[in-house]
């Protein structure tokens, strides 16, 4: 009996310890990054753990906010967030709604064609050549047009539309409503939770995406925020900041960490909304199509 008691105590202890440690690994970097971004040179360059800024200094942010490409990056990212999300929702609904109607021709084939795009892609080079042919290279539209066609989101939307009772739609049809009217007056108002979920998926994709920028855009004024920060953080392009007339330039570490904060701000602001809708969203996604 005594041995069993001991086991009952030790197992929860280990579970709590492991989980706390994991949470700590995620939380600590954010504290560290914030501290270094607000620290003067000596403190920022010190090795080891960082918790509270002892030598407060916001020079890194001043330098960063004077850098024009941070602002154009923010503008471009905002553009792709707004236009990209609206376009994604439009394309998703326009594909899913007809496919959810029982009288739509060739449904099975079309769904299979959608599925195929999820498991096979042409590859980097054919995609690049396509963008070139379409004159989308070095254009902001390359951020929003290709990503609007997302088969997974169409399937999620489709399974939601199918769950709307047919009787509701039939009743409207008998009352003389046309397809478009049914879509806007009945189907979409009922689908707001899944529209929000897909909209947020798209929003997060557009905040964090940089690959299309890296592959298709070389004009720096059209760079998205992620790519601007990528140059500072990963490619170590710090020369725009070292030429400043500032006598005591901020440490490169402070600059980098400030760029991390500036870049993650949109996601951190959205985080509470994301938490609320995403947990439900993954459940919708798990429904077998």
């Amino acid at each position: 009996m005594k041995a069993k008691k001991w086991q009952d105590l030790i197992a929860p202890f280990i579970i709590y310890l492991v989980l706390s440690l994991l949470a700590l690994i995620v939380v600590y970097p954010f504290i560290h990054v914030t501290e270094v971004s607000f620290s003067a040179r000596g403190e920022a360059l010190r090795s080891g753990f960082h918790f509270v800024p002892l030598d407060f200094e916001w020079g890194a942010y001043r330098e960063l906010l004077e850098y024009p490409f941070i602002w154009s990056g923010y503008a471009n990212t905002l553009f792709r967030m707004v236009v990209g999300t609206i376009l994604t929702l439009l394309v998703t609904v326009c594909a899913a709604y007809p496919l959810s109607r029982p009288d739509f021709p060739m449904k099975r084939v079309l769904v299979l064609l959608l599925l195929f795009t999820m498991i096979f892609d042409g590859g980097i080079v054919p995609n690049y050549l396509l963008m070139k042919e379409l004159h989308l290279l070095n254009s902001r539209w390359v951020y929003v047009l290709p990503s609007a066609a997302n088969a997974f989101q169409v399937l999620v939307m489709l399974s939601f539309f199918r769950s709307i009772p047919d009787a509701l739609i039939e009743a409207a049809r008998i009352d003389g409503a046309r397809d478009l009217r049914i879509l806007f007056r009945i189907v979409l108002p009922l689908s707001i939770p899944s529209l929000v979920t897909i909209g947020l998926w798209s929003l997060v994709h557009h905040i964090n995406a940089f690959m299309d920028n890296l592959l298709y855009v070389t004009d720096q004024s059209k760079f998205v925020l992620q790519q601007v920060v990528r140059q500072i953080l990963i490619e170590n392009k710090l020369d725009p900041f070292t030429t400043a007339t500032n006598l005591t330039p901020p440490a490169p570490e402070s600059l980098k960490m400030a760029s991390v904060i500036v870049c993650s701000l949109p996601v951190l602001v959205l985080y509470p909304f994301l938490l609320k809708y995403f947990e439900k969203g993954t459940m919708i996604g798990s429904v077998k199509g």
Binding site: A95, N127, P146, A149
Partner: peptide
């Protein structure tokens, strides 16, 4: 129907379009 055509064009160009480029292999 017109709705579907709109989405179809997107999928056709951006998902099936690259398959044409595959022939350069």
């Amino acid at each position: 129907m017109a709705l579907f055509l709109f989405s179809f064009v997107f999928f056709f160009i951006f998902k099936y379009g690259p398959l044409y480029g595959v022939i350069i292999a």
